[in-house]
Design a binder for these strands. Structure first.
Lengths: 254, 254
DNA sequence: CGACCGATTGACTATTTTCAAGTGGTGTGG
DNA sequence: CCACACCACTTGAAAATAGTCAATCGGTCG
């Protein structure tokens, strides 16, 4: 069961600089957020934050800590992961338009989630166009990312999808300062090890492949010396080789 | 080459009630839109409105007439159709955040497009929260639709994708008043004929299939009496049969 | 009529899934 | 400390699915 941990305090929030409030000047934060009551919820691994088709709540969420997967499923149980949220992500936006949730949000690791009441937020938006713009910008980025995934799933073959995924993962680690490791392992950043946030079967579910197909290509690339793996951490040895497989730049059709 | 047809006139706009201005009271329309200069552009079939990776313009667009396909492509030329725009759709929203276009917009039929300058629009948004809400709501719907496609492409097999597409198409005709026919054919609405906006190869490109696979299942279903087709118009004879194939409700795994 | 173009069909091939068996690491209880 | 179970992952062989290549059909247009 999700636990209420505390009220939120934007000024001391660990992800404020990544949140939709990042552009608010610090001095405004204090006075502006007067009366804006957020709460921090704690979820354990595998707990559901909200479910596809459920009524959306009068809140929207920001991930503070941990990882969340956003999924949709077919009536017969097949699951497609849409994306993985990292700290700072805004989610549950169906609440904005009062529609039922279009997908399920499930904790991939133990998580902390900040719950922002819609009423208060819309007052803030009116007072501070920066917030409004930040939200808009999230929406557009979110859509772009989902469109990119659509291209991956619709147009690419299994090895291309997988290679792209590993490369993107590594980029996103780089962009986030090389550290999202869920298990607290300390690794030399020079060697660029990355902890895999997803299991084989989840990677399959993200890319529309079976666990066996994922496993086979990974094994293949280990034999070829493209990648190395130990204890759920992965290292790219030959980015150029992977890029040729991935079809991300001109070197595409070999 | 796209042609400037005229200045836009919101009051007499044929798609006003489907546009982001649909919630503005008519009396406000007149005075509010003072100084908001839109222009109507005409594109021929197959012309490009904007290209993936190009700088976004200082405008955003509303489709007035015709159909537009939104696509992304891989460096080696493979193309994925993301969605098909119908009159009233807002598009080119990368302009909102000043990013390069994430996809290509191409006229599927001869089109009329209304170009809304961002500067003027953002003034309007501030003056009329209805517009702002309409835009937000479009964004969310757009994201939901793209997520739905992600599930289609990632989790479904060829016949499921195809059957779902035909059924959705028919629903969307129903929702839009049974008439989007691009070639002006007049058909009895009782028989529920629907003109196919996409060629076989475009359907393939939308669903991540080859033209041959599309063709084979269509032929198969014609033999089985699920559908009928003539002159680019399609009729669903056995929606129940198709639904069983499509995996959209409980009757999924048969 | 003949050229062209989209769609269809068939035969074959490639890719990916399915099913089944096996490996290796981790944690628990005797 | 070992035996055992458990679980994620790996591997192999067979089957299913979808793609490729090539020939053909049928309609449209000059």
């Amino acid at each position: 069961m999700p636990q209420l941990k505390s009220k939120g305090h934007c000024l001391s929030c660990p992800v404020r600089h990544r949140s939709i409030f990042s552009d608010l000047p610090e001095n405004l934060l204090n006075e502006s957020l007067e009366g804006f009551e957020t709460s921090v919820m704690v979820y354990e691994e595998d707990e559901i934050i909200f479910k596809q088709n459920a009524n959306s709540s009068e809140s929207v969420y920001t991930l503070r800590k941990g990882l969340i997967k956003i999924c949709k499923s077919l009536p017969d149980g097949r699951i497609q992961i849409m994306r993985v949220l990292v700290p700072g992500c805004l989610f549950g936006i169906d609440g904005f338009v009062g529609e039922n949730y279009n997908h399920t949000a499930r904790a991939l690791t133990d998580c902390e989630v900040c719950r922002l009441p819609l009423g208060g937020l819309s007052k803030l938006r009116r007072k501070h166009p920066e917030i409004d713009h930040a939200i808009l910008s999230r929406f557009v980025k979110n859509l772009r990312q989902t469109e990119d995934m659509l291209l991956e799933l619709g147009a690419k073959k299994a090895p291309e999808k997988l290679a792209t995924y590993i490369l993107r993962l590594s980029q996103s680690f780089a962009a986030n300062g090389l550290k999202l490791s869920s298990d607290g392992l300390n690794l030399s950043s020079k060697e660029e090890w990355h902890s895999l946030p997803l299991s084989r079967s989840e990677i399959g579910s993200l890319l529309g492949l079976t666990i066996e197909t994922v496993s086979r290509f990974f094994s293949d690339w280990k034999r070829k010396g493209f990648i190395k793996e130990s204890k759920g951490n992965i290292q790219i040895l030959d980015a150029k080789g992977l890029k040729e497989v991935a079809c991300i730049d001109e070197s595409c059709g070999k």
